[in-house]
Write a protein that binds this DNA or RNA. Structure first.
Length: 261
DNA sequence: ATGGTTGTTTAACAA
């Protein structure tokens, strides 16, 4: 059972990349973020042609949006209305075997890491607090998976330079602390770090602004796959498809792949 | 300290 998360940064623009990825890596469930397409315009036929008969999408015009593409049947559940914004950052489904799967797109948070002067950063922090409270109180399936672009690189070696990024949104102490609180509240296990020691650099995103993303390799691990304790013994493998950052007209994020037994 | 790119939509944001 292969579950993938990928911030695609416009689904319609990158349908060919999705096709290439699906052919190459054969995911059973593909969770996408930043699909940037309103529901009536969702490319359902293209997605079904790739073998995903079971699809849930929550979109809006131009921004945000998440989708869950599945080869296995799924039951849709209502996503939470985070920060009362109705901004399509969450999808949740039940997979066969009562496996609960969440797909999140956490707000990026703007440039200035101060909630008093930057409303986007305040939104990000509130979103994280709400996630924490929700996972603390929500009645969850024993087998649960949470994936998404969480827009935070929590560990020292989830960024190219811990010291240089301490005041950069995505790696500030306040964000890391709040993300850790989400993880604790849901008792989540990091399914990717499970296979890679914390001392090893691991990235899933490279900025478009770098002249050569490979040369300096200034990446960050913003995309995550977390699992409930019951699924921890079922973890088989994890891989981050770094090569796709070099494909033609790529997303700035690459797929994060986790295999379950 | 600054500017660097991409996508949506077509001037200004968001990331």
């Amino acid at each position: 059972m292969r579950i993938v998360t990928w911030n695609i940064n416009s689904l319609r623009l990158r349908m060919e990349l999705v096709r290439r990825f699906v052919q190459q890596e054969q995911p059973d469930v593909l969770c996408l973020q930043e699909i940037k397409v309103d529901d009536p315009l969702f490319p359902m036929e293209d997605v079904k042609a790739l073998g995903f008969d079971h699809v849930v999408h929550h979109g809006m015009k131009g921004y945000n949006g998440v989708a869950i593409l599945s080869k296995l049947p799924l039951t849709t559940r209502a996503p939470n209305n985070w920060c009362l914004k109705n901004d399509s950052r969450h999808g949740v489904v039940l997979l066969p075997g009562d496996v609960e799967l969440h797909n999140f797109y956490v707000p990026a948070g703007g440039d200035i890491p101060d909630p008093a002067v930057n409303a986007k950063f305040a939104h990000k922090l509130q979103f994280l607090d709400e996630m924490r409270d929700w996972f603390k109180t929500e009645k969850r399936s024993k087998n649960a998976v949470m994936v998404g672009d969480l827009n935070i690189a929590p560990l020292e070696h989830d960024v190219w330079s811990h010291k240089q990024l301490l005041k950069i949104v995505s790696h500030t102490p306040i964000e890391v602390e709040k993300l850790n609180a989400v993880q604790s509240a849901g008792d989540w296990v990091d399914g990717v770090r499970h296979f890679t020691p914390e001392t090893e650099k691991l990235y899933s995103w490279w900025s478009y602004r770098a002249a050569d993303w490979q040369k300096n390799d200034k990446g960050r691990r913003l995309d995550h796959v977390w699992v409930s304790p019951a699924l921890k013994p079922r973890l088989k493998a994890a891989k981050i498809l770094r090569e796709s950052r070099g494909w033609t007209q790529p997303s700035d994020h690459v797929p994060v792949i986790v295999d379950f037994d």
